[in-house]
Every structure is written in C-alpha cells, then in structure tokens.
Design a protein around this nucleic acid. Structure first.
Lengths: 138, 138
DNA sequence: CTTTTTGCAAAACATTTGCATGTAA
DNA sequence: TTACATGCAAATGTTTTGCAAAAAG
C-alpha cells in the first residue's frame, strides 16, 4: 500500500453496531463471527451476518477487539483499547481465554534482526483445555 | 492422552503420496494446499486436490510437515521428522520462513499450569518482511 | 481378494461483495 | 437530503466428504 490517506471513515452510531459490541463483550472467550451471530439471534437482535463480520473487522481495526486466527476461522474477543496486544491461553473446548504474558519478547526482535527481517506482527497462541473442560474430558 | 489404541492406519505407498511430499519439499516457505496442488499440476502430476489435502493432513500428523494457520488458510512446510515442533519467522511477502528458537518455552507450561489448563499445542508465529523483500519495499 | 487410496463432484463452512433499501446526521 | 450502514443473497475460497473405481499388498 502506498500510504494513500484513506478518507477517515465516518462512524455512524447504529443499533446493530452496539448489539455486536455488547454481544462480544458478553462472550467469555474468543468467539467466531458466526457464533456471535448465532448468539445475537438468540437474544432477539436481528443483525445480519454480514454486518457482524463488518463490525468485527472494524472493532479489530480500531483495537477494540483482539483477534486470533484459528483453524476454524477468525476469532474475536472484546478488549480494552488501552491494552495493546497480548497473548492468550485458549481452551479448545469452551473458548475461554486467559491472558498470559511472556517473560520477554526481546528474543523475537532479536531473531528478526539477526535474520534481517522487519517485524510486522507476531502471534503467540497457546491452546489447551481449561480445568473445567479438562475434568469432564471423555 | 488416553492412549486409546487407534487402529494403526495402514499406510500404503502411492505415487501421489510421494508426489505431494516431493512438491512440499521443493517449496521454499510455507505453502497452502491449493498452491501445492497448482504446483503439482504444472509439474504434470495429476493429483487430485482432495488427495493433496488428505496427504498434507497425514504429513502434519506424522510430524513430517509443519503447519501454521494463516488467515488465508492452513499452510504447510516440509520438516524433518526428528525436529519436533519449532517456530518460525515468516516473510509476509515471499513466504520464506526461518526457524527460530525461543530461549525457553517453560513459561508456557508454567502459565498453563497456573491457570489449570492442560496443554495441547501452542503456536508462535512471527511475521515480517525479509531483507530481500524489505529492500524493494514500495 | 480385501482394504486403502484416489478422483471427482457435491457439500459444508467461513468470509466477502453487490446492490437496493433503510437511516443517522 | 445525503452519505454511510444494513440485509440479503449471490459469489468466493477453503477444506471436507460420499462414493465408485483404481491400486496396493
């Protein structure tokens, strides 16, 4: 991208925008767009799936949502805008996610530098099964 | 692991199995199943896409291939069976990947234990632009 | 011969997009 | 009024699956 100054997208306040946001906040761990859409329907909100996707994208861009790429798709989670980025320990069963902090991320920059890479982003995803789900494991 | 003795899947030796493996080895960085399939076609091998997916899955399970989940899908890369799992520094432009080793992964187990999680897998993906691609950066 | 593997096409999903229609500002 | 936002359905793109035919052992 040649840094084309994008027309500062206007953000209009809409019911569905709020609904998506609220639903996301209500969700315990990371959720997929479809899952969130399902939840919204159950709650009575008649928000279109496309809108859920669009809003989730916006939320992620705005930093209001954290997102990780899982094999079953993109997952989102509400996130305080101040948080910046962090890593998670995610339960593969229920999706519950715990924030974890690596002791140091210097080694990442270190490694990048050593190999002549310019860092753009990094992801640390740790998957497992939480105590609750693990106990009832079949 | 509950060590449920799974019916030891028979592994029959087939041409396409070899073809997929070879194509994967020939590929420099991480490749998607579809990309690999395309490559195979260009090389003349008439391997079905489904087979490529199936084999790639097997290779990953067997530990003969490394795999990362990217937004555009699952990516695979040939990998020595002895290697175990490791992490990568991936160029977002050309896909070239360099192996990197975190100083220690104890903190992951540590964190899991602390939160009562049973670890199943973890992924560390660091994305950036390699020296080569970075130079010509527009 | 028996069982696995393949190929193909259809099915399943996740996600995006085109467009007419609502609607905030 | 006038853009932007939404909904819906169609379009994409990836990965899986059903099943009959081919191949391995």
């Amino acid at each position: 991208m040649t840094d084309s100054a994008q027309p500062p997208r206007e953000r209009r306040r809409t019911v569905q925008k709020e609904a998506v946001r609220r639903a996301l906040v209500q969700s315990p761990g990371f959720v997929s767009a479809t899952a969130l859409h399902r939840r919204l329907q159950q709650q009575g909100s008649r928000v279109g799936l496309a809108t859920v996707y669009r809003q989730l994208t916006v939320l992620a861009e705005t930093g209001l949502a954290d997102t990780v790429t899982a094999p079953e798709g993109q997952l989102y989670r509400a996130c305080a805008p101040t948080h910046g980025h962090h890593h998670h320990l995610i339960c593969e069963d229920c999706g519950r996610a715990v924030e974890i902090a690596p002791p140091s991320e210097e080694w990442i920059e270190e490694a990048a530098r050593r190999h002549g890479y310019t860092l753009t982003r990094h992801v640390v995803e740790v998957f497992g099964r939480c105590a609750e789900c693990g106990a009832e494991r079949a």
